[in-house]
């Protein structure tokens, strides 16, 4: 069983605030799910060493490095919760 401290640590890494009840439930759920993943230990190693990280069907072609005007910038900023003068406002970091 995954410990309470482990759940809290992962939640912090994931920037998720969890209630005590949620932590307890996640301990149980994550343990069951991670146990199920043990099944993969039985899986054979692939013949080729190379791991395919992308779908084979990807076109993979890169676009030309050309600047295009986009008309959606203001709409995207508009959708953010806190903004000023065409910028998204963020709390001070330092």
């Amino acid at each position: 069983m995954i410990s309470k401290q482990e759940v809290e640590h992962i939640a912090k890494l994931a920037r998720l605030e969890l209630t005590e009840n949620e932590i307890e439930k996640m301990q149980k759920d994550l343990s069951a799910i991670l146990d199920y993943f043990d099944l993969l230990k039985k899986a054979p190693k692939p013949e080729t060493a190379q791991i395919l990280l992308e779908q084979k069907t990807c076109s993979g072609g890169l676009r030309k490095d050309e600047v295009e005007r986009s008309d959606i910038a203001s709409g995207i900023i508009e959708a953010s919760p806190d903004k000023k003068d065409g910028y998204i406002k963020v709390k001070t970091i330092l």
Partner: peptide
Amino acid sequence: LLDVYLKSRGKGLGPEVKRRILIGT
């Protein structure tokens, strides 16, 4: 700022989404 991340996500995301984010992380 960290509180904004933690609380917005903690409040806004549902149980299955949280579960998957935690498994992935």
